[in-house]
Simulated scan of single mutants.
Amino acid sequence: MYKNIIFDFGGVMVDFDPKDYLMERFCHESAEEKIYRLTFGSETWAQLDAGLISRFEGNQKMLEDAKAEGCLFEVQEVLDDWMSILRIRRRMLDLVRRLKSHGYCVYYLSNMPEDALALLREKGLLDKFDGGIASCEVHINKPDPRIYQALLEKYNLKATECVFIDDSRPNVQTAFQLGMNGLQMKESVGTLVRSLATCNISLR
């Protein structure tokens, strides 16, 4: 019997599709690929997610790399503006509320740099959950099993009583390996609700 539903933030609770954002901004596939590699897809960004470097340090490193590849201005634009894509999904907030009203506990487990986490805290998103862990707080990124274990231990949860929802297949696979049920968020909230129903989680 499932008692706990664990949500990722980016791509699940919050709009976050950096490749679409870059394509819309630059309208050029090769430019999008290069800038993604220098920003969101870089090792520096992974270090930001893990809270291993400050935003200032991370931005300086990404700008140095961008300068060496002749796209300093474009990367600076992205670093100045990227958090504008972090829009909270209202229908997902409604789903969280409905789950809580049916007696489930809800948690978050997300890869996220400190400044983005602070923004979502200011917007009140974290208050909607019974608890959670962001990667920057424990210096570990998904899909490393240790961050999942940290959440389970912090709130004394049993893996077999948890359903984990993420837009990333590798992250969902790790949840399965640890004994949780895992659902990959692919499309609409309605599709997710039907997937939850297959886990005997009915919201009617």
Rank of each mutant, 00 (worst) to 15 (best):
1 M>D: 11
1 M>P: 14
3 K>N: 10
3 K>E: 15
3 K>F: 11
4 N>E: 09
5 I>C: 11
7 F>C: 07
8 D>G: 03
8 D>Q: 07
11 G>L: 02
14 V>L: 01
14 V>N: 00
15 D>W: 10
18 P>V: 04
19 K>P: 00
22 L>H: 13
23 M>N: 14
27 C>F: 10
28 H>P: 02
28 H>N: 15
30 S>G: 11
32 E>Q: 15
32 E>C: 14
35 I>F: 09
35 I>N: 02
35 I>T: 10
35 I>V: 00
36 Y>F: 15
37 R>T: 13
39 T>V: 04
40 F>H: 08
41 G>H: 13
41 G>V: 06
41 G>C: 10
42 S>D: 01
48 L>I: 00
48 L>K: 06
50 A>Q: 05
57 E>V: 03
58 G>F: 06
63 L>I: 07
63 L>N: 03
65 D>V: 06
70 G>P: 00
72 L>S: 00
74 E>P: 00
75 V>H: 09
75 V>D: 01
77 E>Y: 08
78 V>P: 04
78 V>I: 10
79 L>A: 01
82 W>K: 04
82 W>C: 01
82 W>Q: 05
84 S>C: 02
84 S>V: 05
85 I>F: 06
88 I>R: 06
99 L>S: 00
101 S>D: 15
107 Y>F: 12
108 Y>W: 03
108 Y>H: 02
111 N>F: 08
113 P>Q: 10
115 D>Q: 12
116 A>V: 05
116 A>Q: 08
118 A>V: 12
120 L>R: 04
122 E>K: 10
124 G>R: 08
126 L>M: 11
127 D>N: 15
128 K>C: 14
133 I>P: 02
134 A>S: 10
134 A>F: 04
134 A>V: 13
136 C>F: 12
139 H>W: 04
140 I>R: 09
142 K>R: 12
143 P>M: 06
149 Q>R: 13
151 L>C: 02
152 L>I: 03
158 K>W: 07
159 A>D: 09
161 E>H: 13
161 E>A: 15
163 V>D: 07
163 V>G: 05
167 D>W: 04
169 R>M: 15
175 A>K: 02
181 N>V: 06
182 G>L: 02
185 M>V: 13
185 M>L: 13
186 K>T: 14
187 E>H: 10
189 V>E: 06
190 G>Q: 05
192 L>Q: 01
194 R>L: 07
195 S>H: 11
196 L>C: 06
197 A>K: 10
198 T>D: 09
202 S>G: 00
202 S>D: 09
204 R>N: 09
